[in-house]
Amino acid sequence: MKCVRCLHDTAAKFAEAPDKSGAWEMYACSRCNFTWRNTEEPEVITPELRDKNFQFTQEVSDLQILVPVPPLKK
């Protein structure tokens, strides 16, 4: 399924309302880690309606690492 933020085909359902009422479902993208519920406002969960500033159009490898992985100790 398509991720609403990075638009890759890397999203899938991972949760639903625990009372099994079908009140909501929730999806996660394994590439950019965006998550959303099907019941959220259209502006947040529809790619065409989302604010362009909050779409993810880069490559994951381009992101800054704040705490670098240290060298392994022998």
Binding site: R5, A15, A17, P18, M26, F34, T35, W36, E41, V44
Partner: peptide, 18 residues
């Protein structure tokens, strides 16, 4: 399954998730 066990929510509109 964290979001099924806790009533989590998006805090601000453009947050990446809960």
């Amino acid at each position: 399954n964290i979001v099924e066990m806790l009533p989590m929510f998006r805090i601000n509109k453009w947050d990446a998730g809960c």
